[in-house]
Design a protein around this nucleic acid. Structure first.
Lengths: 69, 69
DNA sequence: ACATAATGTATACTATACTTAACATAAAGT
DNA sequence: ACTTTATGTTAAGTATAGTATACATTATGT
């Protein structure tokens, strides 16, 4: 099971779903689906999101029960 | 453009493509394709690979021209 | 020389990420 | 009251991740 902090960080940066989507090259629905946990994005998109929020991918996405690192 | 160090780290750990695939739950062909750069895996698979090699996702996959962090 | 294990590659198939379009709701501004 | 902006959600479509099967090549061991 995959978890993420996209919604939290997006709020912190004051982006709308549409704005964030535009910045990383996807639609607002895609951002919405990711926040909802509906699917596991590609590593390419995950890297772009992490870059946008200036965090490491591992801080943005993690697997259930994976406290490693 | 996405780059990765899967082949290098797999060699360092002495895994065959088949073994590594088994450990992270995909086929050997999928590992082969990733090493070749044929496609961008899901963040879920990327997290499992990083966990296997005990590195952060960002150290295993990165975007072309992205020296950040 | 033969067998086995690992890899490269190709094709067809299935699963899922992601898009497009649409409609509904709520909040904020005029 | 009306408009605008942001979000939730759904359904149908397209693109691509990932599987299954198969065959060829290379390296290693006997």
């Amino acid at each position: 099971m995959l978890h993420n902090r996209v919604k939290e960080l997006r709020a912190r940066f004051g982006f709308s779903q549409g704005e964030l989507g535009e910045r990383v090259g996807v639609t607002r629905q895609t951002i919405g689906f990711i926040e909802k946990g509906d699917f596991s994005p590609s590593i390419t998109l995950a890297l772009k999101l992490a870059r946008e929020f200036e965090v490491k991918v591992d801080e943005l996405f993690w697997l259930e029960g994976d406290k490693s690192q």
